[in-house]
Design a protein around this nucleic acid. Structure first.
Length: 930
RNA sequence: GCUCGGAUGGUGGAACUGGUAGACACGCAGGACUUAAAAUCCUGUUCGCCCUAAAGCGAGUGCGGGUUCGAUUCCCGCUCCGAGUACCA
């Protein structure tokens, strides 16, 4: 029979499901390998052809590793809490759980059609109470932990309380809020319980605090920094403003340094690591206090404490809390005007306008901490309230922004190093040279000066070394419905954890998915929803990233394991350890991938998991963009659309308007006219101006979306060509990491390849016909070339080149008319990860036991079949290739040279010149230098 | 501005540590089979010049330089495209 892909694929998908072919055990004599995909949010639109790209790659890799003798964990699940289902619920009143369930079923069907080797018995859904029970449990662990800087890890708050009881805050080194109190053991013991609790909250790794947050009025919720892009919400694109609110936060800053350190040891793409480094934004410097007459001091952060003698003014952010107190009556109008002016600027204005220098003088002075000289205090919007201390010491000779400011306002610019040049034109931040005009550091170099100054400032009590991070603690509450309830209740205004036995705290039913009339989050609508029937629960839910920050551990728990009272049994974690290969998009660089590393480190500190980093190797698959097709409708003189359409190549002769046309009725830019008339019935009688008898469409790359008619569904492709073709074609498109527009042109090449492959096993009448004869040398060579090539390609994730190589191999075997079992059976195994259905079918036709292909042994590469004793050398003269010569590979350089110089054909290229030198690289090239 | 990535035929792309640039596939052109179409198969296909053809000559991997016997690959300078990020003190 001809290659009946529809029948073959359905049959094997059913077989795998019924036999649980890909179910994996938590113990095995084989080495483990964990291949993970970033799990999808099940959106209502279903999968388009771009989504499975990464899944196909990971599935090929997982199947390959199985053949290579690994026990492979390859699971899939759904990140099923999130905004779209809730927005839909607001519009329609339908419970998000129902929408989510429908979408998941649709996703599952589409994924199944692609023939993935997932172990579905381990599926997770973040919105399932049996799953989010453990998300809540982790939240409780964070609540009950603090970060001990001495041991450099998280520890239980019980331990902290014990310390307070024994020695108060003496010698305590902890990551905590700025406003913690110092107290003795006695003082601690004397505190009322409520004050103890409110003090402890300042140390907890998840805490409630009044802070400035990103508030999105349209979504009615706060957002984390990574959910805001250019002042708009990432989801929906609504404006975001700053607002002070009481909010749950995660003390991720405690892990800033470990998050940075950990990047060095993991195999991730460099751009992604760089993004995380920038996001964490570590800068090493010093905190310096400039005393005020009032007895207070202005604290600044600087990375260049060595330039302190060059400080000629201080600049505060307009929002700085001291501004009002420092403004003198004479300057009051100017300052108020300036603050007013900056307030009017939106975030976007401020970003766009970085050229204009502006500011205002407060009229007050601070004292230089070392020289005691008066330093004028200015305000300017180039200093940001949210970074460092919101104040800087301005050193115009060393910092370009300070230089511009000083030049504009006529403030002095003092050189501080003999290495500085051109100070009349610009600042010179050099660290070369020795210091001048710099008191105690005159004559010293950069390193000496820094050490000396820090020691001096510490002695004076005026400063200390300090590492500053750009990373902020992550806001953890969302004023939304469709998320995990926070397992917290309130008593006298203070938060307390619910009992562990009460987990999961199930999301209550509400009448509407909107805030209450008094502005409370939707959970405020739940009736009779009280802890122990009397105490208020927290009404915020957790953000989208909560459930995805630990999900890879839940996959380690088998269905049986999930009956136990743990998120994953210790033995399972000890066996699977971490993810060996993680494939997903780079858009999660500063969100999911950072939070996951944070929670992983935290769970490691508490001894629940074994590895410091969760994802050993990570690959970002490229985004598949849409590729839109257009038809051109001719516009008449009155500007109205006519019933005529002109082909792309002739459109310049007319006035036209471009209309999107469904890409699925266009092949190689040629429009199927009959299908077009069916697609747009109002143009059923349209006339078409053709070129060469064809209507050629225009092309543009855009985002894939329904409104642009450029969505290509995997279901349609599978119906026409089969899943094996789709899998191989997606790989064939180009390097995995590269973004590219989807283009179905060319898929037939892959389909033809699979048919050709099928034909190797069949005679002209399509009878199965495989011979047991001994293969020829050429046949062995073709096979072993592909064995080696595919192995090399998979190891370096170059899937597109292996598809080409398969084509070459099958072309060669077709030319050789090879139908030898010894060759074909091994080829079936090598191709199996890419095209699992057709290979399963042929594997069983070859008489092997059904379904065992996925654990067959990967063929052993034998280099002997590739040994050549002759090579056709390109012979070039002065680097220009002139001819090819077959020469035995056993000859020495001297023998080859002799042969070359004796060659008559070559003489005409030498043009009578003498050969100066012969370059001979064995098996590569011969080059004559004349 | 800074950081990172990229630029190769009509198209997607290949060339892994410097060694025959354009593999593989699409498209296109021509041909075979067929009453015809579809399917399949065969031939050609970087560009330019010369040419009935065979063959030959020249240019060629964004641009300009450099290193080298030899550069798509390494170095320096630039242009354009994409991503991230931003008065970060």
């Amino acid at each position: 029979m001809d290659y009946q892909f529809r029948d073959i694929e359905k049959r094997w998908q059913k077989f795998w499901a019924e036999n649980q072919t890909f179910k994996v055990d938590n113990s095995s004599a084989k080495p483990k390998y964990y291949v993970l995909d970033m799990f999808p949010y099940p959106s209502g639109a279903g999968l388009h052809v771009g989504h499975p790209l990464g899944y196909i790659a990971s599935d090929i890799f997982a199947r390959y590793k199985r053949l290579k003798g690994f026990n492979v964990l390859h699971p899939m699940g759904y990140d099923s809490f999130g905004l779209p289902a809730e927005q839909y619920a607001i519009q329609t009143g339908q419970h998000p759980a129902i929408t989510t369930e429908t979408n998941i079923n649709r996703y599952r069907e589409q994924l199944d059609n692609l023939g993935f080797s997932f172990d579905w018995s381990r599926e997770v859904r973040t919105s399932d109470p049996e799953y989010y029970k453990w998300t809540q449990w982790i939240f409780m662990q964070l609540f009950n932990s603090w970060y001990n800087l001495e041991s450099d890890k998280a520890e239980s708050t019980d331990e902290l309380i014990r310390r307070f009881e024994n020695s108060g805050t003496k010698d305590l080194k902890a990551v905590c809020d700025d406003d913690v109190r110092t107290f003795s053991a006695e003082e601690w013991k004397g505190l009322p319980d409520s004050e103890k609790q409110s003090e402890l909250l300042k140390y907890r790794l998840t805490y409630l605090r009044e802070s400035t947050v990103n508030w999105c009025p349209a979504l009615g919720t706060v957002l984390a920094n990574d959910e805001v892009k250019d002042g708009y919400s990432e989801r929906g694109g609504y404006p975001v403003e700053q607002k002070k609110m009481m909010q749950w936060s995660m003390r991720i800053t405690a892990y800033a340094d470990r998050l940075l350190q950990g990047l060095d040891g993991i195999d991730w793409p460099d751009p992604l690591k760089e993004m995380q480094r920038n996001w964490i934004g570590k800068s090493v410097g010093a905190l310096v206090k400039f005393p005020l007459n009032s007895g207070n001091a202005i604290e600044v952060f600087t990375t260049r404490v060595d330039t302190i003698y060059g400080t000629t003014f201080l600049v505060l952010a307009p929002e700085h809390e001291y501004v009002t107190g420092l403004t003198t009556p004479e300057q009051e109008k100017e300052i108020l005007d300036y603050i007013d002016q900056t307030k009017k600027k939106t975030e976007l204005d401020r970003m766009a306008d970085t050229k204009t220098v502006s500011g205002a003088f407060t009229g007050s002075y601070a004292k230089h901490p070392i020289t005691n000289e008066p330093i004028p205090i200015w305000i300017a919007d180039y200093v940001l309230a949210g970074y460092g201390t919101g104040a800087v010491m301005a050193v115009p000779s060393g910092d370009q922004r300070d230089w511009l400011f000083a030049t504009k306002f006529g403030l002095p610019i003092v050189a501080i190093s003999d290495g500085q040049t051109n100070l009349d034109k610009e600042a010179d931040p050099t660290k070369e040279g020795t210091y001048i005009n710099s008191g105690i550091i005159n004559g010293l170099n950069y390193k000496e000066a820094t050490t000396t100054l820090i020691a001096k400032l510490e002695e004076l009590g005026a400063g200390k070394a300090k590492v500053n991070y750009r990373l902020r603690d992550a806001i953890f509450g969302r004023q939304r419905y469709w998320g995990e309830p926070v397992p917290v209740y309130f008593k006298e205004g203070l938060p307390y954890l619910i009992d562990r036995e009460d987990l999961p705290l199930v999301l209550p039913e509400v009448d509407k998915y909107l805030p209450t009339e008094s502005g409370e989050p939707p959970l405020g609508r739940a009736e009779n929803w009280k802890y122990k029937n009397e105490l208020e629960y927290e009404l915020s839910t957790m953000p989208g990233w909560a459930g995805s920050s630990w999900y890879w551990y839940r996959y380690m728990a088998s269905q049986d394991d999930r009956k136990q009272d743990t998120f994953a049994p210790a033995e399972a974690i000890a066996y699977w350890k971490d993810v060996d290969l993680y494939i997903g998009g780079s858009e999660h660089a500063t969100g999911h991938l950072l939070y996951s590393r944070f929670w992983n480190k935290f769970l490691k500190d508490l001894g629940h998991v074994v590895e410091e980093e969760p994802f050993k190797k990570l690959i970002n698959q490229g985004m598949i963009q849409g590729r839109s097709n257009f038809v051109y409708r001719i516009i008449d003189e009155e500007g109205r659309g006519t019933n005529k359409f002109v082909s792309n190549g002739l459109k310049s002769q007319y006035t036209t308007s471009a209309l999107h046309v469904d890409v699925n009725i266009v092949m190689n830019e040629i429009l199927d006219l009959e299908k077009f008339k069916a697609f747009r019935p109002e143009f059923a009688n349209a006339e078409f101006i053709l070129e060469n008898g064809k209507y050629i469409c225009g092309v543009e790359v855009e985002k894939m979306s329904k409104s642009k008619f450029n969505v290509v569904s995997p279901d349609d492709i599978i119906e026409r060509f089969g899943a094996d073709t789709l899998r191989m074609y997606e790989m064939f498109l180009g390097p995995l990491e590269q973004s590219k527009p989807w283009n179905t042109n060319g898929i037939e090449g892959v389909f033809k390849f699979l048919r050709k492959f099928w034909k190797l096993f069949h005679d002209d009448e399509f009878n199965f016909n495989v011979s047991d004869e001994e293969p020829s040398k050429a046949e062995f060579k073709a096979l072993h070339k592909i064995i080696r090539k595919v192995e090399e390609d998979i190891e370096r994730f170059s899937f597109n080149t292996s598809v080409s190589s398969f084509m070459i191999c099958v072309n060669e075997l077709t030319d050789l008319k090879c139908n030898k079992r010894k060759i074909l059976q091994e080829l079936v195994v090598v191709l199996a990860p890419y095209a699992p259905h057709i290979t399963e079918e042929l594997w069983s036709l070859l008489g092997n036991s059904a379904g065992k292909l996925s654990v067959a042994a990967y063929p052993q590469f034998n280099p002997e079949y590739l040994v050549e004793n002759e090579f056709s050398y390109p012979v070039s003269v002065n680097g220009k290739t002139r001819m090819n010569l077959n020469i035995s590979l056993s000859l020495s350089q001297a023998e080859v040279e002799e042969l070359i110089l004796a060659n008559e054909d070559l003489k005409k290229y030498l043009d009578g010149k003498t050969t100066k030198k012969i370059i001979f690289v064995k098996g590569k090239i011969i080059n004559l230098v004349v």
